[in-house]
C-alpha cells in the first residue's frame, strides 16, 4: 500500500524540500506538496508534515499567521479524524498557535539563534512517531531556531507529563525550555511538534540517521494500521 503523505509549504517555509526528501527516503513514495492557500488537502492522506522555516516572515509571532492560513483549517480537521501530523521547528510553532498542541514557543533564553546538533532523550516510545526508539535512549538531531523556548503554565506541564505526552527532552537544555521539553504530543498521540529537525538527520552524510527512524517508525506504524 502506497504511503500518501503531504508536505505543506507556507510563504517562508524553507525545510519543506528536506521534509519531502526524508519522507520519500523512509517510505519510497514522494509526498504530495500542498500550498498554504489551498482550500483542501488531497484525499486519503496517511501523514501531514508542517516544515521548518520562517512562515510569513515570523510576523506578529512565529507561526501565528500560518496558523490562520486556509489550509490549516483542513489540517485541524484531518488531525481530528486521526491523520498523523508532524510539525518541525516552525511547524511546531504553527501547531501551538493553532491550538493543536499546548504551550507556546518563546524567544530562546539566550536571545541567540542556535544552530547545532543536540542530544535528545526519547521519553515516549508509545507514539507512532517514536515507537522504534529505545525508551530513555538518546538520539542526535540538529536544532536551528530562535524561538524554541517551550513555555506552558504549571498545570498544563503537569498534565502533559502525567499523560506521557513529552516525546523528547534536551539532554542539555538548549534554549530555556521548561523541563527541557523538545517535543510534545497531543492527547490522542497523532500530532507531534518538535523543535529539532529529524529531516536533517536522514543520511550518513548529515552526520547521522537518527531522524530517519522517526519517519520509518511512522511508515511502519501506518502500514500495520
Amino acid at each position: 500500500m502506497a504511503f500518501r503523505a503531504a508536505v505543506v509549504t507556507f510563504p517562508g517555509s524553507n525545510c519543506d524540500r528536506d521534509m519531502a526528501v526524508a519522507l520519500e527516503r523512509a517510505s519510497g513514495e514522494a509526498p504530495l506538496r500542498v500550498w498554504h492557500g489551498d482550500a483542501a488537502l488531497p484525499d486519503r492522506l496517511d501523514f501531514i508534515a508542517l516544515p521548518g522555516g520562517f512562515s510569513y516572515g515570523d510576523y506578529l509571532r512565529s507561526g501565528a499567521m500560518a496558523a490562520n492560513s486556509p489550509i490549516m483549517r483542513e489540517v485541524v480537521r484531518a488531525a481530528d479524524r486521526g491523520v498523523p501530523v508532524l510539525g518541525v521547528c516552525n511547524g511546531f510553532q504553527v501547531l501551538t498557535e493553532a491550538g493543536m498542541l499546548p504551550g507556546a514557543l518563546m524567544r530562546n533564553e539566550s536571545q541567540n539563534f542556535i544552530c547545532r546538533t543536540v542530544d535528545l532523550r526519547v521519553e515516549n516510545t508509545a507514539s507512532l512517531f517514536t515507537a522504534g526508539y529505545k525508551a530513555g535512549g538518546t538520539i542526535r538531531i540538529p536544532v536551528a531556531h530562535h524561538d524554541g523556548n517551550y513555555f506552558a503554565d504549571t498545570e498544563t506541564l503537569e498534565r502533559i507529563e502525567g499523560e506521557g505526552r513529552v516525546a523528547f527532552r534536551y539532554v542539555a537544555n538548549a534554549n530555556g525550555s521548561q523541563r527541557d521539553i523538545a517535543g510534545v504530543l497531543n492527547a490522542a498521540g497523532n500530532v507531534l511538534g518538535m523543535m529539532p529537525h529529524p529531516e536533517r538527520a536522514v543520511d550518513p552524510a548529515h552526520g547521522g540517521t537518527d531522524g530517519l527512524r522517526l519517519f520509518e517508525n511512522a511508515v511502519k506504524a501506518l502500514a500495520h494500521a
Binding site: N68, G103, F151
Partner: peptide, 9 residues
C-alpha cells in the same frame, strides 16, 4: 483572542 495576542503567554 484569535490573533493579536497569544493568551498562553
Amino acid at each position: 483572542e484569535k490573533l493579536l495576542a497569544n493568551t498562553v503567554i
